[in-house]
């Protein structure tokens, strides 16, 4: 019996030694795993943006974009995020919506800015979407819901337009699963605190929109597709409780008001 146990132990040792030895080789580099994933993400992002660019109208006014850029600059700078990698686009649309596309495309609809009461609320939503990018949630969601094979075939030019439209709709109008949303909320709150922006405003924004419950206009996409908003706002409040928060506004009241006016097309 002792001999058997020793032999079994030897099998375990051989197994772990083989695994350990093979683990010392950089397989990710050899099989180009990271590079292939990155290339697929780049191609997909560009592909979706082209699709969106053809159907939606983009607001390119320097006056408007520079103000949102200054908000993004603060969030990125204070959180060591490379600002240049984020491709921000503001679309002229009434929907209260913002979403991240592969390859760090950040799409914001003018309706969202119109709905925000102050810059901290808008920064909250921007931080939430940046958190999805930083945590690689976009590709995870696509991979899970559509399948990597379909995504790769789309980037190779074999995908049909219907599939592309369907997957774009998936990214723009459906939430991530509960765990990913929660992770993005908490990360966003951390981003905001580091950037000296009030995270409570983000929680208030979620809470305010959750009160529209049952009476949500079709246009309020961001909240109707992100259920349990009240619960999420409570979680954010709990997370920031007892933390010292410095508040340092980025835009002046006049600049914020003029931004709201410039995107109001009603």
């Amino acid at each position: 019996m002792k001999k058997l146990l020793l032999q079994f132990l030897a099998i375990l040792i051989i197994f772990y030694a083989t695994w350990f030895a093979l683990n010392s080789i950089d397989w990710m580099h050899i099989f180009n795993v990271e590079q292939t994933t990155k290339k697929t993400e780049e191609k997909l992002g560009d592909f979706y943006w082209d699709l969106l660019n053809k159907t939606e109208s983009e607001i390119q006014s320097v006056e408007v974009v520079s103000k949102i850029d200054s908000l993004l600059d603060r969030i990125c700078l204070k959180n060591n995020i490379d600002r240049n990698k984020i491709k921000f686009h503001l679309l002229k649309k009434d929907e209260v919506n913002a979403y991240a596309l592969p390859n760090n495309y950040l799409i914001v609809y003018s309706g969202l800015i119109d709905e925000c009461e102050n810059e901290a609320e808008l920064c909250g939503v921007l931080s939430h979407e940046i958190a999805h990018m930083e945590k690689h949630h976009v590709m995870k969601k696509l991979g899970k819901e559509v399948g990597l094979a379909v995504l790769i075939s789309m980037t190779a030019g074999n995908g049909n337009a219907e599939v592309a439209k369907r997957t774009l709709k998936l990214l723009s109008s459906t939430a991530y699963d509960r765990n990913l949303e929660s992770e993005a909320d908490i990360t966003a709150a951390d981003f905001l605190m580091k950037a000296n922006i009030d995270p409570e405003a983000f929680a208030n924004f979620l809470f305010r929109l959750s009160k529209l419950n049952g009476n949500i206009p079709k246009e309020v996409f961001w909240i109707s597709t992100h259920p349990d908003s009240e619960e999420r706002s409570v979680k954010i409040i709990q997370h920031i409780k007892d933390k010292v928060i410095h508040k340092d506004s980025i835009l002046s009241i006049e600049q914020w008001n003029s931004l709201k006016q410039e995107v109001n097309f009603k």
Binding site: F15, T18, W19, L22, N23, I25, D26, W27, M28, F31, V33, H136, K140, K144, N179, L180
Partner: peptide, 21 residues
């Protein structure tokens, strides 16, 4: 495939180990 786990060097080396066995 279905959860948040990602392909890693540890996973590839494990698959190669079981392939050898």
């Amino acid at each position: 495939i279905f959860s948040d786990e990602v392909i890693s060097g540890r996973y590839i080396s494990y698959i190669l180990t079981i392939l050898i066995f």
